Simulated scan of single mutants.
Amino acid sequence: MDDNSKTIHVEVAYALPDKQRIVALELPEGTTVRAAALQSGLDKQFVELDLSAVDLGVFGKGVSKPEEQVLKNGDRVEIYRPLIVDPKEVRKQRAAKVKARKAAE
């Protein structure tokens, strides 16, 4: 059996508006999404991160069970920040501004 069948190469990414990090990891086959996030060490660089509880995704798609989903070679795990503002509320506010502007014209 060759070495490539025993390990996978993945990236774990986290971004703030002013600071981003991508960590490349070599992990054993069978590693889960959550385990990769925990292995990344990004919680040492971003103290607000609780890698045992944050929402995670792979290539922009949220993972509902990161403790169970196994990664494939080349996957990119993404660590999501909690939403500060409800996106629906932002859209409502934006629409209200546009409506007010049109009414003023």
Rank of each mutant, 00 (worst) to 15 (best):
M1E: 11
D3R: 14
D3Y: 14
N4E: 13
N4I: 12
N4Y: 14
S5E: 12
K6Q: 15
T7D: 02
T7M: 09
T7F: 15
I8Y: 10
V10I: 12
V12P: 06
V12F: 11
V12R: 05
A13V: 14
A13F: 11
A15L: 05
A15Y: 06
A15N: 08
L16S: 14
P17W: 10
P17A: 11
D18V: 08
Q20S: 13
Q20R: 12
Q20P: 01
R21P: 00
R21E: 14
R21D: 09
I22W: 04
I22S: 05
V23G: 00
V23N: 08
V23F: 03
V23P: 00
A24N: 14
L25Q: 10
L25W: 05
L27W: 14
L27K: 13
L27N: 11
P28Q: 09
P28G: 08
P28I: 00
E29L: 10
E29S: 13
E29G: 01
E29K: 15
E29Y: 10
T31F: 06
T32Q: 05
A35R: 14
A36M: 04
A37P: 07
A37L: 01
L38P: 02
S40G: 05
S40M: 04
L42A: 05
D43T: 05
Q45V: 00
F46V: 08
F46Q: 04
F46D: 01
D50E: 07
D50P: 00
L51Q: 07
A53Q: 15
D55F: 08
D55W: 03
D55M: 11
L56C: 01
G57P: 04
G57H: 08
G57W: 11
V58C: 01
V58P: 03
V58A: 04
F59N: 07
G60L: 01
V63H: 06
S64H: 13
P66I: 01
E67V: 00
E68W: 07
L71Y: 09
L71Q: 10
L71R: 10
K72Y: 01
K72S: 13
N73V: 01
G74S: 07
D75V: 03
R76W: 03
E78C: 02
I79V: 12
I79W: 07
Y80I: 02
Y80E: 01
Y80W: 04
Y80C: 00
Y80L: 03
R81P: 03
L83N: 07
L83K: 12
I84D: 06
V85N: 02
V85T: 15
D86E: 12
P87R: 13
V90Y: 04
R91L: 06
R91W: 11
R91K: 15
K92C: 00
K92S: 11
Q93S: 11
Q93K: 15
Q93V: 10
Q93T: 08
Q93W: 04
R94W: 04
A95Q: 15
A96H: 12
K97Q: 13
V98F: 11
K99D: 10
A100C: 00
K102G: 00
K102H: 07
K102P: 00
A103V: 02
E105Q: 12
E105G: 13
